[in-house]
Design a protein around this nucleic acid. Structure first.
Length: 548
RNA sequence: GCGCCCGUAGCUCAAUCGGAUAGAGCAACAGCCUUCUAAGCUGUAGGUUACUGGUUCGAUUCCAGUCGGGCGCACCA
């Protein structure tokens, strides 16, 4: 529809010798302002030095349009041009939805292109805590959105099984193992205190008994801990139906000498230098960097920056059209250094998009608590799912924009689980299923009724038309959410769908054996609403219950 | 101190590239079940968009400053 308006407006512009402009369309907030509006007359006013309303009038009087599609055009306010779309247009959307089914809303905009989304990427030093949930849920929905606009998406998990964190894990497991023989064996202050470490130690004890006592090589402890933790992490992700198809181990960058090559490139291009026994990366103050950064320590080991830069170059070399990283705000500065490194070596960092989400504060009533992995009283993502349910977890994390702080009162979510906003949407779906079950009994012929021969004249009530109007917007809502990586827009939209459906349901009897043609028409609308809800649920990653 | 993000109804949050009377849910108040699911519907109340100035036809949105909060500021990741 917008495409059509764009075409006829541009034709009119040519006729009037107006400068060619990219025309913006908006959905007016109020119904009385029509279905689509444009501010183009106001933008032209400056260049043409005439009043916006005058320009708008001139445009309208010269505009040639299809009266079957557009029922009315008005000028309002400071010079908005408001288009009223005819009901017939919306009635035909019904056919479109019923024909497209699970594909309604899918766009082939990026067909043939590939995207890589990397997220979660927690090192296997312990379970995912509840705070990770935001990123897990967000990434899951964004990956779905990208697929809905045509990308072939790789879901990637980057981890590091070398490094200090993993050494610490090994030491922690070792200490717990040693405590089996000697309860006084010292446990480091900064070790991982959770009970799971003791369980890993017991597994090792059961297998190896005392044969590893007082050993100096902790690699077995590390390996066992890593496997144990990764199993648990994957199990947690599995509950949320998150499945990465690539697990990228940082160590592989060392093994195939990618890191060495990257370092050589920096040196060869004079972008790094040696000082105090370390290798430093020259950072550009013009880009806001305050000081140079170490990429290789005095010990000869790289800092995280070098492998991270090499890793991103690797992703670029894999040929993706779009590369997305999701980080918490605690990594808000470091990614800029990494992108700077990538760019300075001449790689196109523009195709790398970084999504930063703010932290989550969890409260249990009035008591707030920290998500430290080192504390033995961590609140894990699994605990959260146990407490409020998998769907509510996914929904709650995705229903807000990523760039705002999130206060999460678990006690509230627990106590009022029946009033959780997720139920409003799911209830609409369950209710629709109930209606269709009822129809199966009384008017089974609705299922086989031919879509092309539907009597659209029977669609008359305000509730029906408004519902169809909302349904017609689904594809553009998907596009907007996907292009901005903002799944919460889908939830706002689905709320609108559910709201309009509930109102429709309240005022329009659907299954009426006395009036089968009308019933069939309304049952088709219900089928379409159910389909849109289902498709939306699939994107945000929650289930579509048939009964509640 | 410096950098990034944020400040919207009692609470948690929306508001599309700068658009029209700033919207939802929860909490509060008043109604609606003999009828396809009342986890629903209808209505009422609730706001100087932290504050001050600027840019313009028009600002929650952009700019500057002030106040307040979160996160960073390692030869940890």
């Amino acid at each position: 529809m917008k495409k059509y308006l764009n075409t006829i407006l541009n034709e009119t512009f040519q006729k009037l010798n107006f400068p060619a402009k990219e025309i913006q369309f908006d959905k007016p907030k109020e119904e009385k302002f029509g279905d689509i509006s444009t501010n183009t007359a106001m933008l032209l006013a400056k260049e043409l030095k005439t009043s916006p309303r005058k320009i708008a009038e001139e445009i309208i009087s010269n505009l040639e349009y299809d009266k079957h599609l557009i029922s009315k055009i008005e000028i309002a306010g400071a010079g908005f041009i408001n288009f009223f779309i005819s009901d017939n247009f919306y009635k035909n959307v019904l056919k479109k939805i019923l024909e497209s089914e699970i594909d309604y809303g899918r766009l082939d905009l990026h067909n043939g292109q590939t995207a890589n989304l990397e997220w979660v990427s927690a090192n296997p030093t312990g379970l995912l805590h509840a705070g990770h949930g935001r990123q897990v849920a967000l990434g899951k929905a964004i990956a779905n959105l990208l697929e809905w606009i045509g990308y072939k998406v790789d879901r990637e998990y980057y981890y590091n099984d070398a490094g200090n964190q993993m050494e610490n894990l090994a030491k922690s497991v070792y200490a717990r193992y040693m405590q089996i023989f000697d309860p006084d064996f010292p446990f480091a202050d900064d070790g991982y205190a959770g009970d799971y470490i003791k369980q890993i130690a017991e597994i090792i004890y059961n297998e190896k008994k005392d044969s590893l006592k007082n050993s100096s090589d902790l690699s077995y402890f590390k390996k066992t801990g890593e496997q144990y933790n990764f199993e648990l992490i994957k199990k947690t992700l599995d509950r949320l139906n998150v499945h990465h198809n690539i697990f990228f181990n940082e160590t592989s960058l060392y093994e195939n000498s990618t890191i060495t090559k990257t370092l050589e490139e920096f040196k060869a291009k004079g972008l790094s230098y040696e000082e105090d026994g370390a290798v430093w990366l020259k950072m550009d103050p013009a880009e806001g960097f305050q000081k140079n950064k170490v990429i290789v320590k005095t010990s000869g080991e790289p800092t995280y920056r070098l492998p991270d830069i090499a890793y991103h170059i690797d992703k670029i070399n894999r040929g993706y059209d779009l590369i997305i990283d999701i980080f918490g705000s605690d990594h808000g500065d470091t990614y800029k250094e990494v992108l700077f490194g990538v760019r300075s070596l001449g790689y196109d960092s523009d195709k790398i998009k970084v999504i930063i989400h703010q932290m989550v504060t969890f409260k249990m009533g009035d008591e707030s608590f920290k998500m430290s992995k080192r504390s033995d009283k961590s609140y894990h993502l699994d605990d959260l799912m146990d407490d409020i349910g998998v769907d509510a977890t996914q929904f709650f994390f995705v229903m807000r924009g990523a760039n705002t702080h999130l206060d999460f009162d678990i006690a509230l979510a627990k106590d009022q689980s029946e009033k959780n906003p997720v139920y409003y949407l799911q209830y609409a779906h369950a209710r629709l299923c109930g209606i269709l079950r009822n129809a199966d009994e009384h008017i089974p012929e609705y299922k086989t009724a031919d879509i092309d021969n539907l009597n659209l004249e029977l669609i008359k009530t305000d509730e029906e038309i408004r519902l169809l109007k909302v349904l017609s917007r689904f594809p553009e809502e998907v596009l907007g959410a996907a292009e901005n990586y903002e799944p919460h827009r889908i939830i706002s939209y689905l709320n609108e769908v559910a709201e309009n459906f509930h109102r429709f349901y309240h005022n329009n009897r659907v299954v009426d054996p006395e009036n089968k043609p009308l019933s069939i028409s309304r049952l088709k609308i219900c089928t379409a609403v159910k389909q849109v809800l289902k498709n939306g649920f699939d994107i945000i990653g929650i289930s579509a219950p048939e009964r509640m």
